[in-house]
């Protein structure tokens, strides 16, 4: 693994964790090692708050009512933040976890929608996380809407998109304008590199800040307890991206 890869991993974990402060309960779903580590970091710095549930973990998961409990919990408003990824994400904050091409016999098939078509509606703060930031992943229009960013007014929807975090920058979802705006640039990125690698249009405010780098305390936690905890569910990630062996 390279030094710069570890630095980027630390940065992404830190950026996401800062969005989770002051929440009561954060849940993390399938294939989400960085959001998982971020939730643990927020909880570690907050002395146990927010509470964290990581699906697939035995130690970071207090559910006792089976696979449905996450969704029941979310439906009641007992989960404050969740994460969604996607093979494609577009400027309307639609996520595609199903595939590329014409449904159903698509050219490229992804695993499937998981709980996105429900959780995106009922969890107040849904953070979209997609590391690969290219015009291939951040597209003008997704090929399949697993879960929509926007819905008709008469549809029950206390939840929805909060932000989109990539390996290059952070976009915030503007509720009023119903689109993304560029919020902060990770080290080495410019307004031009973001524009060039983003397939959808977004607001570019006059002031775009630099993404805050992790503190020594945050780095220490990431490579200590948090690395070990995340290795339980994501052993390959922990060893390749954090140099932590399970």
């Amino acid at each position: 693994m390279s030094e710069s890869n570890i630095k980027l991993t630390e940065l992404l974990i830190t950026v996401v964790s800062r969005m989770l402060r002051d929440l009561n309960h954060v849940a993390v779903g399938a294939s989400s090692p960085i959001p998982g580590a971020a939730a643990l970091l927020a909880s570690g710095l907050g002395k146990g708050s927010p509470k964290v549930t990581i699906l697939g973990s035995k130690s970071v998961n207090s559910f006792t009512d089976g696979g449905k409990e996450l969704f029941d919990c979310a439906g009641q408003g007992r989960i404050d933040a969740f994460f969604l990824g996607g093979g494609q994400i577009d400027g309307d904050a639609n996520v595609n976890l199903v595939g590329i091409g014409d449904y159903p016999h698509m050219d490229v098939r992804f695993p499937g929608s998981y709980g996105s078509a429900y959780l995106y509606y009922v969890v107040p703060k849904v953070i979209l996380f997609r590391e690969e930031h290219t015009s291939r992943t951040l597209v003008q229009k997704v090929d399949f809407i697993s879960a929509p960013g926007k819905t008709e007014k008469n549809i029950y929807r206390p939840g929805g998109p909060h932000s989109l975090v990539t390996s290059r920058c952070v976009f915030m979802w503007e509720k009023k304008a119903q689109c993304f705006s560029l919020h902060s640039l990770h080290p080495g990125e410019t307004l031009q590199t973001i524009r060039k690698n983003t397939g959808f249009d977004y607001i570019e405010p006059k002031k775009v800040i630099n993404t805050l780098e992790p503190t020594e305390q945050e780095k220490k936690l990431i490579h200590g307890d948090i690395g070990k905890m995340i290795a339980e569910v994501y052993p390959s990630f922990a060893s390749s991206r954090l140099a932590v062996d399970s």
Binding site: S113, Y114, Y118
Partner: peptide, 28 residues
């Protein structure tokens, strides 16, 4: 989507023909 499968199984568990569920309207 995950809770739709749980809901369908829960309907059977209760011996009822269907189960309502939030979300999903607007998804492909």
């Amino acid at each position: 989507t995950c809770p739709a499968i749980h809901a369908g199984l829960q309907a059977s568990e209760k011996g009822i023909p269907f189960m309502p569920l939030r979300g999903i309207i607007g998804s492909d």
